[in-house]
Design a protein around this nucleic acid. Sequence first.
RNA 1: GCGCCCAUAGCUCAAUUGGAUAGAGCAUCUGACUACGGAUCAGAAGGUUGUAAGUUCAAAUCUUGCUGGGCGCACCA
Length: 574
Amino acid sequence: MRSTPQCLVAALAEAIRSIVSAASPSHAAVTPCHDARFGDYQSNVAMALGKKLGKPPREVAQQIISGLKVDDVCSKVDIAGAGFINFHLRTEFVARQLVEMAADSRNGIAPAAQPRRIILDFSSPNTAKSMHVGHIRSTFLGDALARIARAVGHAVITDNHLGDWGTNFGMLIYGYKHRLDRAALARSPIAEFERLYREINAASQSDKSILDAARKELALLHAGDAENLKIWKEITDFSLLEFNKTYQHLGVTFDHTLGESFYNPMLQGVVDELKKLGVAELSEGATCVFFRDDPALKDAAPMIIQKSDGAFLYATTDLATVRYRVNEWKSDEILYVTDARQQLHFKQLFAAATKWMGKEKPELKHIVFGSILGPDKKPIKSRSGDPIKLTELLDEAEARARKIIGEKNPELTKEEQSHAARVIGIGALKYADLCQNRDLDYVFDWNKLLALQGNTAPYLIYAYVRVRSIFRKADSNNISSNRFQLQAPEELSLAKHLIQFSDAVHPILEDYRPHLLTSYLYELAVRFSRFFEACPVLKAEEPIRAERLALCDITARTLKTGLNLLGIETLEKM
RNA sequence: GCGCCCAUAGCUCAAUUGGAUAGAGCAUCUGACUACGGAUCAGAAGGUUGUAAGUUCAAAUCUUGCUGGGCGCACCA
């Protein structure tokens, strides 16, 4: 289905060409009006063109309009203000678009013009530790972006780049050998690993022999010692088991889980190659990449890829990872969803990859996000000062949701309540995260998150529930989705928004901003609620009734599809 | 010290990337058919976009200075 802006842009470009032959098509941009009083879509081309031609913009606009052939799309095109061209859509056109959308199995989402192979690197928790709040933004953003990219037709590979090879394994293995509490391990392996690490770390500060022993264990592990590898593997497996429970709970999946350890055998080769190519050099005993010709990086510290003691760093692993993904997965684009504090690292990584691979280098992008803050506007912490565990956060979200559901709708069965509490609790958490501009910090607030009104998951899910409820009550579901009159203003307003679904989804991937979709969905829910208030469906006379049922159906599908793109489920009852 | 980022209604956030009278939600005040789910809807009030200058037809958005805050800066990840 051809989107409304596409129709208008084509006609506009044609009209502009007849005035200025050299005008580039990019001039013919059409955007939705931010205020419905102006019209439905607008073009600002006349202002830019007027400047170029040395003519008053309104005159240029008039000239453009006189050559514009949009009678089938617009009922009116007028000029306003400094030279804005405003397009007013024909109701019949909106109706035709809606008919197409209703019949479309993709719910109107147009396929991407140029599908890419995109690797999404996100979540990436460290093994032997619990997942905590610090992982939620990466996990939610990454998962949502993967879903959206797939929906528009890109080939997406998701990869959970686990931190499974850190220097902490020296302490852990030493602890495992000397201080392991078997019963505690059986009860809660991660908690036991965390305890071991803390205990050994503390002990090693006062007892240097323990520190040395831990270092030896690490060296043994890296040298491939069988016993240490076995312990390392056990720790990794326990961790994965825990992580997978959480991911399942969240509805997040990965195509691959290749942790840092996977790349370990490749690291020396990478360093040698970079040295040979002259990309890396020795400095103060360490192998480094300098960026002397890069104004943004030349004054910063170099990127170290091998320490003076021979050990590798995460910069090395990340370089090896880029090459692996290019060679094995033929990726066009790799997206790293990590927090803003790692910006320097990724700038260096990307610059080093460019030096290394030249034109073979895929598009590399750092999808930055800010911190989650507590009520004190400091990064959120539990009372003890530790990061809040993800499982605890999820449990609390569900418990809070369940309490609200119990109060609002006691008629649900226990099973329905549990299910609804999970969908709403997790959904609210995800939505609160995704609805904010990702690169800013945001303040975490349970009350705002689970609020039943405003731009929240519960409000959207509630809108969905209300639509679905109509279909349960209707004894005949005579839906007519091949003809729309759209007589009531609330119907037309809803319809106009529905046909913009595809236009809301596509720009998300230009700058990886899922909050564009939440804004769209919230506005959809608001328009639906107005329609629902003003336009009786089941009590309406035919053929209005059938038409309104169709509007309800398309709304429900769009809400569901949109929420699913964000990784959020819907409910039939709540 | 160097670098990156941020500052918008009392609070939490938007603003289609330079477009029109800067929009929502919360909180506050007012109103609505005994409601196809009222977990709703309508309305009011709330702003010199931190500050000073500059760029142009047009600036919350771009440039510079200042103020206040966050983060990062050789052998952690």
